[in-house]
Each structure stands twice: as C-alpha cells, then as structure tokens.
Computed example of a mutant assay.
Amino acid sequence: MKRYRIFSFDFDSRAQSLESVPEEWNEKAKELHLANREKTIKGLAYQYGEQQLEVKIKNFQDLKFKPFSISAFHNKFLQQVRNSYVVGGYYPALTGACALGERILNHLIILLRQYHKDSPEYKKVYRKQSFDFWPLAIDTLESWGELLPEAAEKFRALSEKRNRAIHFNPETDHNDQILALEAIHLIQEIVSIQFSAFGTQPWYFCIPGEMYIKKEWENKPLIKHIFIPNSLLVGPKHKVESIIPNIVVNDQFEYSNDEISDEEYCALREK
C-alpha cells in the first residue's frame, strides 16, 4: 500500500529575488520582493565577499536558479561550478561544467550496466572503468532507457561545448564567460530533466506539493539506485512533523496488506 515519497533534494532559487519588480504588482507584493532582494544581496555579500559585489550579483543572477534536484553525485560539484562563475572564474567554471557532465555519464554507465548485460551495447562498456567518448556513453544510456531523450540531447550539446573548451581554441581567451554560462545552463538543464525532485518525469506521480515514485518504476535500476535513496516509504496517512533541522515523518498508522494503484493512493492521501 505504501509509496516512496521524495524528501531529499537540493535547490537555490535566490536568483529569482534579484529580478526587477513588475509594475503591475500591488504595493505589498513590491515591498516583499524588495525586502527579499535586499536579503539575498546581503547573503551573497557574506557568501562571496564585498569586493566587486555588483559583478558577483550580476553573475549570480545570470546563472538563474539552481534546479530542484534529488541528492546524488552531482550536487556538490554543480555548486562548485556555480561558485567559480560567480567570483569570475569563468574558465574553471566552463571546464568544471563539462567535466561534471562527463562525470555524470560515467557514474550512470558504471552503476547501471550490470542490469543490461543482454544488450548489444554492453560489450562496448563492460570492461572500462571510465569513459571520455561521450557519444558512446550517451547513446548507450539512451538505448537502455536510463537517460531521458531530452537529457540526451542536452548532453550532446554539452559535448560540443566540452570539445571546444578542453581542446585548444584561441577564441576561448576572449569568450570564456559566455561559453561558461552556456555550459552551466546546459548542465543545469540536464540535472533538471534527469534528476529533478519535482516534475513530469515518467516515474513520478504528484499529489499537490508532494512527489511520489510510481509503483511500476520502483524496481527500475535508475530509480532503485538514485531516487529511492532520496525517498521515504510512507502510507497515505503519513504526516510530516518537521522539515528543519531534520525531516521527521509520523507514519504510525495501521495499513492493510492489500496492494493498491497509484490512483487509489492519491485518493486515500487526499481524503
């Protein structure tokens, strides 16, 4: 009867508070937005330092929000890439974003290949402990059904950025900031598509404000290894007692052993 609900995720939406105030907003909404903006600027000054603060604020805003993502092998490094860009380390941010893309592909191949030994692609990847030829990794994961098609397309676009960044190109001396921002946006889009904690991914069903893993997806390799560790198995009567500093869930309720559909779970949860 129970389902896995996503509880562990990472995001940073502060960039939205730096946007201009729309004229059509009422005065109370404008005041609240300006207060949030001031709070964000103070936080950025504390986090990144006062020197060249206006540049850092602009860079942070240009990055856009860090996507809602389950906690996996990319979160820490994505934050490091973003930090590099904010303080003006554009080339490290560029190469870091590309390296992170390659790292994600390697993690997925090595973690999931044991489940695809009967596939024609397996013989191409079963021996290697690392992969630097992106087309093979992307095509393999996509053919296994472990990589969403939209994410695969973003990886292919990032692969082009990676080739230009890693191999010597004199133009990079002059457009490192633009290239870095493009690469970061691509890796963030990949994370948002493939590792989102909230969205329309085929393995999710949604109850307003809550994301659950569909029963039919629970034993899929990607879900079992990456998404379920970020979830708690809960019944439809569960209550979230606390979020900060720790997640506390009360699910001390009696449930039958009957198996129910995801739709029936939703109906029971919404009662």
Rank of each mutant, 00 (worst) to 15 (best):
E216P: 03
T172E: 08
E153T: 13
F155Y: 06
F133I: 13
L100T: 07
L233S: 09
W144M: 00
L232P: 06
Q188Y: 07
N230E: 07
G88A: 02
E160A: 14
T40N: 00
P67I: 05
H225P: 08
G88T: 01
Q80L: 11
F68A: 14
H167M: 04
D262C: 05
G199Y: 01
A197F: 08
S84F: 03
E270N: 09
T95F: 06
E102L: 06
K220V: 14
L63H: 03
L32M: 14
V125Q: 03
A165G: 06
S8G: 13
E153I: 14
L108W: 01
F7H: 15
N83K: 09
E31N: 13
Y126N: 12
P221N: 02
Y204R: 12
E153V: 13
H116R: 05
K237E: 10
Q177I: 08
L268K: 11
A267C: 12
P245E: 04
I184C: 03
Y126R: 13
D62R: 11
F227H: 05
K123S: 12
S261N: 06
F155W: 02
H238E: 03
A183N: 04
F60Y: 14
Y91F: 15
L108S: 00
G49P: 07
Q51L: 11
S17E: 15
Q188A: 10
E31Q: 12
V21T: 12
K2N: 07
E189L: 07
F133A: 12
D173M: 15
L44G: 00
E142L: 10
L148F: 04
P22D: 00
F133K: 14
R164G: 10
R5C: 09
P229Q: 09
A183E: 08
